[in-house]
Design a binder for these strands. Structure first.
Length: 362
RNA sequence: GUGGAAUUGGCGAAACGGUUAACGCAUCGGAUUGUGAUUCCGACAUCAUGGGUUCGACUCCCAUAUUCCACC
């Protein structure tokens, strides 16, 4: 049984995912390590804060260093020195973020490498093959993540293209051990979301992601879309909300039944001076911290909070020391991971609603 | 002492006889949602002082102050 629901409270549930490189307790947050590493951190850091799975990116890794190098190293886990599970994103999001370099057709996508400008083609099948060769525990099918738009026709057309790609991806696996997740699309349109769920459920994937969110829609629209998908998707399969989000987004989504998250926010914001704390967001660049003896988050037990004052972190930022990026990334990830850990505990105790109400400061 | 040059925001540094004086750094804020991020976006000066020329001067002239260079 690759996924087991062990407790639930309302729509929220606690589960366990059994993967080739270990187990993952859900709801979980997956730190983003696009290039095979979480920016500024090392695997030992992730172990220290309890990360059970990391995300990496097929698009980026296939361009550089390339499949040959990763195979030569003995696969992605060995190459990166990360022995726990890895989920690889397909590169579908890059069709969105690097849209100006991409040309999508029915068979896949042709793009100019943002690194050296060479022409590269990706198809649903080659993306499956790449991820299988990487040895990722969970691989995502190639999808198109369309920009936020009120034009339903465009969203529907894109969604059906993603469906065809998902169908191809499903049929061309060579290693049945690896878990393959499909990506539900359909934008903010409930009927399209349902259609997408239905189509993909029929293909019987190991898990389902909710994609095409946080591309410009409102929070309410994102929540509504998530809710529609959670109602439709099979309760026996893990649900992964891609690219989300703020601490509040996570709590609200767990309440709807989401099991997995990834987001660059804790690491990117950390690098740029924002810390997530039990008291809300804090910008360490602000001059008010110049002489503060407080820990970043007085309620946190991470290395950063146990060791340094806000004053010192502020000083490091002003002085342009790269260490501060690491210290804030470490703290923010610790905060996210602990938030989900606490969610799991609350769900198991049947007190998730109470837990939500005590975390409104996010 | 003589001759020459310079003086623009906290610092460095543009510009032009004509409405709101580039840009960098620093400072103060903000953003960031499947990472093209050590990124991005805001805010922040009336041009050494005093006089004059001009419809209009940071831009031209005179004086003063300060600084620098060369020569004695």
């Amino acid at each position: 049984m690759p996924f087991q629901v062990v407790a639930s409270d309302g729509a929220a549930r606690v589960g366990r995912l059994t993967l080739a490189h270990g187990k993952v307790d859900t709801p979980c947050f997956m730190p983003v390590g696009t290039q095979g590493i979480v920016k500024t951190l090392v695997p030992a850091d992730l172990h220290a804060i309890g990360a059970q799975i990391m995300l990496a990116n097929t698009y980026h890794l296939s361009l550089r260093p390339g499949l040959a190098t990763i195979k030569h190293a003995g696969g992605l886990h060995r190459f990166c020195r990360w022995s726990k599970p890895i989920l690889t994103d397909s590169g579908g999001f890059q069709l969105y973020s690097l849209a100006s370099l991409c040309k999508v057709n029915d068979d896949g996508v042709v793009f100019r490498s943002h690194i050296d400008g060479r022409k590269v083609a990706l198809t649903p099948a080659t993306v499956v093959q790449l991820q299988e060769e990487f040895g990722s525990d969970i691989h995502m099918v190639l999808d198109e993540c369309p920009p936020y738009s009120h034009d339903k026709q465009i969203i529907a057309k894109s969604m059906r293209l993603s469906h065809r790609w998902a169908q191809i991806a499903r049929s061309c696996r060579s290693n049945q051990q690896l878990k393959q997740f499909a990506v539900v699309q359909g934008g903010v349109f409930a009927d399209l979301r349902r259609e997408s769920c239905d189509y993909l459920i029929d293909l019987d994937f190991e898990g389902y992601a909710i994609g095409g969110v946080s591309v410009g829609e409102t929070r309410a629209e994102m929540r509504a879309a998530t809710a529609v998908c959670c109602e439709k998707l099979p309760p026996t399969k893990p649900r992964y909300l891609m690219g989300v989000g703020t601490p509040l987004d996570l709590l609200e989504s767990v309440a709807l039944g989401v099991d997995m998250f990834d987001c660059v926010m804790p690491t990117r914001n950390g690098r740029n001076g924002t810390a997530f704390t039990s008291e809300g967001r804090l910008n360490i660049k602000n001059s008010g911290h110049r002489q503060s003896d407080l820990a970043l988050d007085p309620n946190c037990v991470c290395y950063t909070c146990k060791t340094y004052s806000r004053a010192f972190l502020h000083h490091l930022y002003k002085a342009g020391e790269v260490s501060v990026m690491r210290l804030l990334s470490l703290h923010n990830l610790c905060f996210y991971l602990r938030l989900l850990h606490d969610c799991r505990q609350a769900i198991e105790a049947g007190k998730f609603q109470e837990f939500l109400h005590t975390h409104t400061s996010f």
